[in-house]
Amino acid sequence: MLQSLLTGLVQGSIYAIIALGYTMVYGILVLINFAHGEVLMVGAYASVLVYAALTFAGTTASLGVLPCLAVALLAAMGVAGLYGFSLERIAYRPLRHAPSLSPLISAIGMSIFLQNYVRLAQGSAPVYFPAHTAEYGAVFGETNNIQVGPVLVTPLDLFILVLCLLLMAGLYAFVHRTRLGKAMRATSMDKTMAGLVGISVDRVISVTFVIGSVLAAVAGMLLALYTTQAKFDMGFMAGMKAFTAAVLGGIGNLRGAMLGGILLGLAESVGIQFLGADYKEVYAFVVLLLVLVVRPRGILGERVAEKV
């Protein structure tokens, strides 16, 4: 039981990181960024490719695993950031004043495009994270497992949890403590007014996309580590779950996305523990339905007065 809570927490914190990207974009553009999962997939590929290249070159053995992981992570963040930025320029910016469902379709188009682009470039078979090397085992192997009471914590669990917590804290500080963060909050409240007080709305939107994509890249690498592979369609289910998490917490709300992600992860692993894995993909939606019936705007969503 406690063990499955830990699994839920680990998966949930990955969901939370992805959900943050959804919720930030939604907060500013009121747009479901359907291609967010694909940006995650691109990030996962970048990290696996770079780490694998480093392994083959023997750098992981000489430099150590953690610095190489950091390099792979940075590369993934860079590539995904670039993709997020381009995505906004190509598919969303021209549609900023279009009827509200048009950007959604354009996003779906990009999502199909990116999946097939990566499938053609890297093949439809998954690429594997080289997790069988001695130096990888020395850091993430079973010998380093920690027994906390009845719960077995693997080094990977710990790595994921710490990284996710750091990112969430970092993002929270960024949004609430920096000038750019303040500009983001202002833009999400009212784009026109933000423009009138001298905020470059286009730039803020670009930054939002880049940050969301960078977070997605981290989540992508963590998923690749967790499942030891990256595949061209991995973004779909992860994106779906994370979007559900964002709605669960109250979309547009940063704390909501974190809470929603973790709750979703917990609901899923506890559901599997008690109800079996047959309906694994459905538990998340059941929880969502129950929450939305009671709180139609998510757990932390505020009841906003309708502007007329």
Partner: peptide, 13 residues
């Protein structure tokens, strides 16, 4: 499918 996705986006834009 690659073209399909691209055309979908292009048509909306």
């Amino acid at each position: 499918m690659l073209l399909f996705g691209a055309v979908l986006t292009a048509m909306m834009v």
